[in-house]
Design a protein around this nucleic acid. Structure first.
Length: 169
DNA sequence: TGAGTGATCGTA
DNA sequence: ACGATCACTCAC
């Protein structure tokens, strides 16, 4: 059981997002230490990607994505649901992998609710944090790809990219 | 299929 | 200051 190093996240999101499948999120909550194995991710890749928040450039919301890979990008959507993203790539290359599902909790809003993820986790460095870590226990499942979900306004080219990754049964 | 919900950002 | 938008979820 090994914690992922900074190098792991300093790669293109199209490399990192599929590699995150099967890895384990370990989080310290009021209940103690809990673990969740990642089953589904999506890649959001730079200002050119019309589905990525960074398509409009750097703002206070998207600033975390412009940092060096290895921190969290957390934001609220529809006034209710916290979205958990892992920032990837080098500084000023705004990319992130959305954690869309973990074992037993599918859906990006459901898993953050279960984990207690909120605004306080934004910018958290996951290579240095005691509270939130990602671990590799050697498990490497077969991975399938598909179109990303919920990005209808993104335009034909990027809407149809197969940048969603999930574990096949 | 549509309501709930509030931060964010462009426009003024 | 205002209004449109939104990487979702749940109940019909």
């Amino acid at each position: 059981m090994q914690q992922l190093s900074s190098d792991f996240f300093t790669n293109d999101v199209l490399i990192v997002a599929p590699k995150l499948i099967g890895k384990i999120i370990q989080i310290k909550t009021e209940k103690g230490v809990e673990s969740f194995r990642i089953t589904e991710t999506e890649a959001y890749r730079g200002e050119k990607d019309l589905a990525c928040h960074a398509r409009k450039g750097k703002t206070s919301r998207t600033a975390p994505m412009y940092e060096l890979g290895g921190i969290l990008y957390v934001y609220l959507i529809y006034g209710m649901h916290w979205m958990l993203n892992i920032v990837t790539a080098e500084k000023n290359n705004p990319q992130a992998a959305l954690i869309r599902g973990v074992e037993k909790y599918n859906g990006p809003g459901k898993l953050t609710k279960r984990m207690g993820i909120n605004k306080n986790f934004n910018y958290l460095n996951i290579c240095e944090s005691e509270q939130f870590q990602i671990l590799d226990d050697g498990f490497s499942p077969e991975i399938k790809t598909g179109k990303r979900i919920g990005i209808d306004s993104a335009g034909e080219i990027y809407k149809n990219k197969a940048w969603r990754y999930y574990q096949s049964e």
